[in-house]
Each structure stands twice: as structure tokens, then as C-alpha cells.
Amino acid sequence: MLPEQWNTLKRLIRGEETKVNTALIVDSPWIPPFLNISTAEYLKNPTLHFQSNMKIIREYPEIIFFPGFWVEMGMAAEPSGYGTPVEYYDNQPPTIKHIIEDISEIDRLKQPNPARDGLMPDILKRYKELRPLVRAEGMDINIIAARGPMTLASHLMGVTNFLVGLKTEPELTHRLMKMTTETVIQWLKAQAEVLPEVQGIFVLDDIMGFLCDEDYLEFAHDYFKEIFSLPAELKVLHNDTPNPVSFKYLTDLGIDMFNFSHQVPIPDLRQLVGDKIVLMGNISPLDIMVNGSEEEVYAAANTCIQQNGGNPRFLLSAGGGVSMGTPESTLKGIIRAINDANRE
């Protein structure tokens, strides 16, 4: 991430930014096909990974590519530490298969060590290789990322099985949540150890958006709060489900920024979360950003800017991550929208 972009994020969370800015969550599903390279080569070749990230940063300096130089192995990093099978492909990120079918099998799971288990050691090695290259360009890797504890649990046993277990075996569900929460914390700490300049954490978890109010408070809130108690200057949560149950509790989590669904109107979300959190969104990532024209993207971006109503804690983005197949015309439409907004 460019130093001025990191400074922009810091001004945003302080409520001091006067311009409209944009950031896009980009990773292995989007970058390789956008640049017409093999996903497999992108993931296994450190030089190609670095050059690819540098190319988009240089060509679109108006956009904050978030979190920046992310070594993202699909959804496989954390669950691979538990021994989940990983399948690789030439032109899409790796996929995983769950390893237990029922929460009663929890004793089969062993707490992983990020330094030795699954793909995590390889990812840490990649960050060590990337760091001097990034620093030589006058940048740092400022933000590290992890899938959240509920998403991790669902990868270990399947979404439906996890949600059924949550209702039928609450004590075992808490055991699993304690285990996955510890994994998330240790994984973030391990990344921070090899990237000492890190100042931000980014946690992605959609499964928290599958819960009712009672279940969120019982099985989710305190575990996420523990993760976000880690020391960091910037704490970001991604949950692009439209379920509003968790929204009123986000301030108590201690997060600074929230990336949310395109199905949630910005004024409604602002009313629930208050003015202390930067809202990061929320153009439709598929209907508009993949399938829309540049003019449709421009119009959707303007709608988001207008719905924000001038609140300084706002970052124009997709309502989620950037989907595979998002074209250059989308980036141009977003850049044109923020440039026009900043001229007004």
C-alpha cells in the first residue's frame, strides 16, 4: 500500500478526511484473470505475485487495493492447518473439503500451529520474501488478514452442519468457537511477527450474518470482540450478508471499518452503527461491477456517495470483495465518480 493511501485510511478512521476515496478488496480470484495470468503461477511464484500487485497499484493509483499484497490461498490458509484437503487449479484459487460431518466429532480436531501446519508456514515464508521487495518500492504491508472464527468453523465441518450443531450442541459449539478463535488470533500474530510494520487487521466472516440476535450474542460477539482486542491501529471487518442482526453491536466489537453487503442501504446501516465506524461499500460486486457498463458503475458509485450524505467516515467500495471477471471499465467508472465528487 502506498504511504499516502495508508495515511488516508488513518484520516478516515479519525473522521478527518475531506475527500471521497475508494478502496477495493482484491485477492487471488480477481488479480490473475484481470492480468491474464495463471492463478496457479500467481500463487506459487513470489516474483509474479509481487509484480502483479505492483502493476495494478501503478496503473490505478486512485484506488486503495485492500489489504495490499495479500497472500490469499482462497479459503484454505486457516483450515489447512487442521488438515482439510486442499485442491488446486490452474485458473481459480484452491478449494477445501471439510473434515468432520458433525460437531460431536470435535475431538478429532487439533489446534494448529501457524509456524508448522498446513499452508500457513508457506504463506509466512512468502510474506518474508515479499517484505524487502515491497519496502524497496517505498511501501509497507500495512494490513494482515484472516478468515473469522465462524467461517473457519464452517470450513471444517460445512455451513449447514455447523449451524445445526450450534442449535443442538451449544457446549460443543463453544468449544469449537474457542478453538477457531484461538487459531485466528495466533494466525494474525504469526503474520505480524514476520511483518513488523503491520498496523492493521482485517477479519472476514459471513457466517456471523446467518444468526438471529440471540445466537449472535451467545455464539459470536464475544469471540469476535476477543479477536479485535488485538493491538492494531486499524481494525476492519467484512461481512457481506444483508442480515442486520450484528450491525448494532459493531461499535462494541471495537472495529474501525466495516465492509458490507450491497443489499444494505447506507443510511440504514449508518443509523444502526453510528458515526464512529468507516462504512466501506457498497456497489453490487456482480450485477454492477462485473456485468454493468462503465456508465452503470459510475451511476451506482454516485448513488453510494449521495447516500452517504457527506459523512467523513466513508470509503467507496464494492459490497464485498471484487469478483472474478470485474473489468477495467468498472475501475474507470469508480475513479471517474470519485474524481467528479471531489471537484464539486
Rank of each mutant, 00 (worst) to 15 (best):
N7D: 09
L163K: 15
P112Q: 11
P93R: 02
V297D: 00
P170K: 12
M324G: 03
M120L: 08
F314P: 04
I335G: 13
L9E: 04
N91Q: 08
D102A: 14
H174D: 09
M54W: 12
F210Q: 13
M54C: 13
N45S: 01
Y127E: 02
P94V: 10
K189F: 07
D268Q: 08
Q307I: 07
K55L: 11
E78V: 06
C212E: 03
D340E: 12
K19I: 11
K167D: 13
L172A: 09
P170A: 01
V26A: 03
G74P: 13
D256E: 14
V164C: 11
S261T: 12
L315A: 05
R116D: 04
M73A: 04
K235Q: 09
R11V: 02
A145D: 01
K332T: 12
K225E: 10
R58S: 15
G325A: 09
E226A: 14
G254T: 07
A146L: 05
D107P: 04
L279V: 06
S246P: 04
R313S: 09
S104R: 14
A136G: 07
F219N: 11
P267V: 12
D27T: 02
M179K: 06
R336V: 01
E328A: 00
I25D: 08
N243P: 15
V86T: 10
V86I: 13
D215M: 15
S80G: 03
L230D: 06
N142I: 08
Y223G: 09
A146C: 03
L24D: 01
R270I: 10
G148N: 02
L316F: 11
M177S: 10
D222M: 01
I57W: 14
Y127I: 03
A190L: 12
Q51H: 15
Y223T: 08
I288N: 00
E169Q: 06
D287N: 07
M157P: 03
R175N: 10
L133P: 07
F65A: 06
G68C: 00
P327C: 03
F69R: 09
I288M: 01
V322H: 00
E233S: 15
R131L: 08
K128T: 13
G309E: 07
N311K: 15
A232K: 15
I37E: 09
A115S: 10
L315F: 06
N53H: 13
L35I: 08
Y82D: 12
S293Y: 11
V203E: 05
